[in-house]
């Protein structure tokens, strides 16, 4: 068996064009010889076929994909027979959101909101099916010429009931931590609010061409994302719509508790941004967290004081309650 090339036949498909090639798999455009329709085939490189973690991930991606039907999700097809590991998907003519943003100009508000709404709509469906995508990022969002959004790549998606795989174990595959939620960084499996966070980050980037956290290295970035407040969009775009800013900041709150609890509530605000009150910097989550911080600091100081007081009394007791030798010997050491 060899890595397939254009012109090869694979079961009912004939490979016609190499669309993309990554470290782990190649994506080909192919013709379904039975229906004469274009499809996309994702074929892992040969050396990964025997990799247990990889094939488990691949199998899961296919399984999740085949179960789902939604206009904004790339459809995963079920070939009649499969002679090797690969995944057949509907072929989408379009470009990725990453490519769309590559010219470093913010998208128009309407365009950005439209994309975010479509993604959210798909998430509402996914979450209702019990699936968390966990890897929403511009590279995984495809846009057709008519403006239809298609979400790709269920590589690390999870049925909520399935066992946990932490990001550490998948770090080589997961790549950029820019859209990863703080709870994922801390190794939790994530829930619907994890996907809400990623959509919030994308909306932020679409409208400002920047991300709220910037750091020259990924370790510092991870640390900042788990502990620092995000920069508001108006930092980059003066005069940014305050209602929209409130929506975005709520979606990317550090603590999942403070975010939109579901994609549906997020979507409702995205459908009518003007109904959302601008954020008052002095209230709500920020203050609640500041309160938690003060409390945490107080508990910590008290704990430290208690340890020190205990040690001080133990030192005092050791000096006064230990029996002493009756005739202290002269120390035999002379240096």
């Amino acid at each position: 068996m060899h890595d397939p090339v254009v012109g090869d036949r694979l079961d009912q498909y004939e490979l016609t064009q190499l669309l993309a090639r990554s470290g782990m798999a190649s994506i080909f455009k192919a013709i379904d010889l039975e229906s004469q329709q274009s499809v996309a085939l994702k074929i892992p490189h040969i050396q990964y076929e025997s990799d247990v973690v990889f094939s488990e991930r691949f199998r899961r991606e296919q399984e999740v994909g085949q179960r789902l039907t939604h206009p904004n999700l790339v459809k995963v097809l079920a070939p009649r027979e499969k002679s090797r590991m690969y995944m057949a998907m509907e072929y989408v003519e379009g470009k990725s959101l990453r490519a769309l943003m590559s010219d470093k100009h913010p998208l128009s508000t309407e365009k950005a909101l439209d994309i975010a709404r479509q993604v959210c709509d798909a998430l509402v469906y996914l979450h209702a099916e019990g699936v968390i995508h966990r890897d929403i990022k511009p590279e995984n969002i495809l846009l057709t010429a008519s403006g239809l959004v298609k979400i790709l790549d269920f590589g690390i998606a999870l049925f909520e009931s399935e066992r946990r795989l932490t990001w550490m174990g998948l770090s080589s595959a997961v790549g950029t931590p820019d859209y990863m939620a703080p709870e994922q960084i801390r190794g939790r499996r994530g829930d619907p609010r994890t996907d809400v966070y990623a959509v919030g980050m994308m909306l932020y980037e679409m409208l400002t061409c920047n991300l709220p956290y910037e750091s020259p290295n990924s370790r510092a970035l991870l640390r900042a994302k788990t502990s620092d407040e995000p920069r508001p969009p108006s930092y980059y775009v003066p005069g940014f719509d305050p209602s929209l800013e409130a929506i975005i900041l709520k979606a990317i709150e550090v603590s999942p508790r403070d975010r939109y609890p579901t994609a549906a509530t997020f979507l409702a605000d995205l459908k009518d941004p003007s109904a959302v009150l601008p954020r008052d910097p002095a209230i709500a989550a920020t203050r609640r967290r500041a309160g938690a911080r003060v409390w945490r600091r107080f508990v910590l100081s008290a704990a430290i004081a208690a340890v020190l007081a205990t040690l001080a009394s133990l030192i005092w007791l050791s000096a006064h309650d230990s029996p002493r030798p009756v005739h202290p010997q002269a120390t035999p050491r002379e240096r």
């Binding site: 340890v307 020190l308 040690l311 001080a312 133990l314 030192i315 007791l317 050791s318 000096a319």
Partner: peptide
């Protein structure tokens, strides 16, 4: 020269 409790303090 110090008691065990003081050693813990020094280490902390």
């Amino acid at each position: 020269f110090v008691s065990p409790a003081a050693a813990v303090l020094i280490g902390l």
